[in-house]
Simulated scan of single mutants.
Amino acid sequence: MNQQPNNPLHGVKLVQILEDLVDYYGWEHLGYKIDIRCFNYDPSIKSSLKFLRRTPWARKKVEELYLEWLSKTKK
């Protein structure tokens, strides 16, 4: 078995991360927190997923924000 009990991102799909962040912050504030074009200009889940899957540094920033959000909302 390849389990990762200490990894909060294990089993969480990128689409779920993005949807949770958009629901919580909204596109405008998300674009302010992570300044990437797909969040600031004509944002959509589809275009953002495409960009994040091809751009490791941007995906890392989104995952870091998600972990920060998780720690805030799980208290």
Rank of each mutant, 00 (worst) to 15 (best):
P56L: 12
T73K: 12
D42L: 11
I34E: 10
Y25E: 00
R37N: 14
E19A: 01
K74Q: 13
I34N: 02
T73G: 00
W57M: 00
Q16N: 08
S47C: 09
R59P: 08
K60M: 10
I17F: 07
I34R: 08
H10C: 02
L9F: 04
V12G: 07
I17D: 00
N6K: 13
N7I: 01
F51A: 10
R59H: 05
K60W: 12
L9T: 06
Q4D: 14
L21A: 02
R37S: 13
W57G: 00
T73E: 13
N6E: 08
D42Q: 14
N40V: 05
Q3H: 14
T55S: 15
E68V: 01
G26W: 02
S44E: 03
Q4W: 09
L52K: 09
Y41G: 00
N7M: 03
I17N: 01
R37P: 05
E28F: 06
Q3T: 08
L65E: 08
V22A: 00
W57E: 05
H29R: 13
R59G: 02
Y25F: 02
E19M: 10
N40C: 11
W27Q: 06
K74H: 14
N6L: 13
N7T: 05
D23F: 04
N2A: 12
S48V: 01
R53S: 15
K60D: 10
K61T: 03
K46R: 13
K75H: 13
T55R: 15
M1S: 15
K75N: 14
P8Q: 03
